[in-house]
Design a protein around this nucleic acid. Structure first.
Length: 217
DNA sequence: CACCAGGGTGGTT
DNA sequence: AACCACCATGGT
């Protein structure tokens, strides 16, 4: 079983620091977390730029903005009608909660439940917000990490999300490394394993069973 | 042309 | 609980 500390270090050395949302406004990070759902960061960032240009990266401004104008601003992010509603619900949630300051005073458990109660915010988006906007030590479980675990442990039944959370947290407690780890796992899964048929220069050898997995079939 | 990208929801079996 | 269709743009 590979240590997650080693996984972090290997990926960091291979791909470099990812710098996701460095020193950004928490509310902007929350909007970005929704906008990036099932699209590329490139398309999400174009929407962020448009929102910034229209002075809408603000809970009150965004909540009062007309739906058509909001949709037009975020068109590049895809699913723009659904996401426009999600951004508005998110803005209203922040307003009804007393603002970002009040939210940042809540415990991580309470804040996670509150985020999950917002329509359009699921487990992954909630954890992303907790980690990147509120700097909480949270393990983001995504499909890349699940797939990576399957490949690092070929043959054993896949562990559940909550169990995986605890496995990672047992080794890494600080948000800076959890922040970097999630970004690195995404980047690695995207650029190496999906493209390269045989993971020839995969930095996770000999742990990663992807090449063996493919040579079996 | 097809396929995919830093998900979530609602409906069906 | 495990599927499924759907949402929609922009890059390869």
């Amino acid at each position: 079983m590979i240590a997650f500390v080693d996984l972090h270090d290997r990926l960091l050395q291979a791909h470099g620091s990812q710098q996701w949302w460095p020193a950004s406004d928490p509310f902007e990070i929350m909007l970005g977390a929704v906008l990036v759902q099932r699209t590329t960061w490139r398309n999400a960032e174009l929407a962020i730029v448009e929102l910034a240009r229209a002075k809408r990266i603000d809970p009150a401004k965004l909540a009062q903005c007309r739906t058509e104008e909001l949709e037009a601003s975020i068109r590049s992010a895809g699913f723009f009608r659904i996401k426009a509603r999600r951004l508005r619900d998110l803005a209203n949630f922040v307003l009804n909660s007393g603002g970002i300051e009040a939210l940042s005073r809540q415990s991580t458990v309470d804040l996670r439940l509150a985020l999950l109660s917002v329509h359009g915010i699921g487990p992954e988006t909630a954890d992303t917000v907790l980690l990147y906007a509120f700097d909480r030590p949270v393990v983001v479980i995504d499909e890349y990490l699940r797939r990576l675990m399957r490949r690092l442990e070929p043959g054993v039944p896949p562990v559940g999300d909550e169990a995986l959370r605890q496995l990672v947290l047992a080794e890494i407690h600080d948000s800076p490394r959890l922040n970097e780890l999630h970004a690195l796992v995404v980047e690695h899964g995207k650029r190496i394993c999906t493209r390269n048929p045989r993971c020839e220069q995969c930095v996770l050898e000999p742990w990663c069973g992807f090449s063996r997995e493919r040579s079996d079939s």
